[in-house]
């Protein structure tokens, strides 16, 4: 029997879009969905990261595991990750997780032969797959990162020191290890609904208005230079700190302003590590969440077992 649908029709509006940054509005849904999206973006959207390092030569000042850890934290372009296999599910390689379906091989060979200190960076990593390479922040001029074009520094070498290694990158999720998280930050806030009691506001002198406006730690309100009326200039700057409400009470004007959080409107900020584009990160999160929901559907045998139980129960009840 198919029941009525209680599905909602959420709306999205993009405000700002860069490769590694996105701000958007999500409306007509509730906090559980907003939070699920946030949680999935941070810890369940897969990326590719270095997971195994075989060091051939390391005469640098950093020990082997220190370097291996640093390599793991380098974001790799991971558009492929959604279609890739997890090594633990891969049947093409028997458990060693080193085949083309579930891994990407990297090589690094650097030796310093001058008196000048040599920086070993992510640019020295050579990938066996041109689609999976260390993220290059200098390629995108709108990127949040500084674009000095030098890559991510791994270690510095002095004359005679050498680093030679082979690394295997695998698909993983942030829940396993933070190195696989595609998100630098994902946050959402409730959209505030701000109502100024105009009558009460007009009972204040300009001096008092100025004092009240300045009591907000963030610039939410301002005074119109012409009409001298208090106006809301940036509702989203409000951080639910209650300062203006306390101030109004202290001034003997409770109810001067009423601020509530809209329960069905959210403003999201997504910052990507560069492993996947911020916009793709949201699309992947939706896809992963759908897959997770699909995985928690009841299996046929569970339903059948209960049907039998139901008949048995009805029989026992004398039905």
């Amino acid at each position: 029997m198919e029941g009525a649908s209680y599905a909602r029709m959420p709306r999205v509006k993009i405000r700002e879009l860069k490769d590694d940054y996105m701000k958007f509005e999500l409306r007509d849904t509730d906090a559980s969905v907003a939070n699920a999206l946030r949680r999935v973006m941070i810890s369940e959207v897969p990326t590719i990261a270095i997971d195994l390092v075989e060091i051939e030569v390391n005469s640098s000042v950093l020990n082997d595991e220190f370097i291996a850890h640093r390599l793991g934290l380098i974001p790799l372009t991971s558009e492929r990750a959604m279609a890739m296999r997890f090594s633990r599910d891969c049947d093409a390689c028997d458990g060693d997780g080193q085949c083309e379906y579930c891994s990407v091989e990297f090589h690094l060979r650097v030796k310093c032969i001058t008196d000048q200190t040599l920086d070993v960076t992510s640019k020295d990593l050579y990938s066996s797959d041109h689609t999976v390479v260390p993220v290059d922040f200098s390629a995108d001029p709108s990127s949040l990162e500084s674009s000095d074009g030098r890559g991510i520094i791994i270690v510095k070498l002095r004359r005679g020191q050498e680093l030679r290694l082979r690394a295997i990158a695998r698909k993983g999720i942030g829940k396993d290890h933070a190195k696989w998280s595609p998100a630098a930050t994902v946050t959402f806030m409730y959209e505030p609904d701000i109502h100024i009691n105009e009558d009460l506001m007009e009972s204040l002198t300009l001096e008092e208005k100025r004092e009240w406006v300045d009591s907000s730690p963030t610039r939410v309100f301002d005074i119109d230079p012409v009409t001298q009326q208090v106006m809301v200039v940036d509702p989203e700057a409000y951080s639910y700190d209650d300062e203006v409400i306390k101030k109004a009470e202290a001034m003997g004007k409770p109810g001067l302003v009423e601020i509530t959080a809209k329960q069905d409107s959210f403003i999201f900020t997504v910052e990507s590590t560069g492993a996947v584009k911020a916009s793709q990160l949201l699309l992947n999160a939706i896809e992963i969440l759908k897959q997770k929901l699909d995985a928690v559907r009841l299996s046929e045998d569970t339903v059948e077992a209960d049907d039998q139980f139901g008949e048995l129960g009805a029989h026992m009840r004398g039905g």
């Binding site: 649908s5 599905a7 959420p10 958007f24 999500l26 849904t29 949201l282 939706i286 969440l289 929901l293």
Partner: peptide, 17 residues
């Protein structure tokens, strides 16, 4: 029903986005 409805909502969200 709840799983179906959530799935529908996510489809809508995907298309909208």
């Amino acid at each position: 029903q709840s799983i179906n409805d959530l799935d529908k909502e996510l489809d809508q969200l995907k298309n909208g986005f």
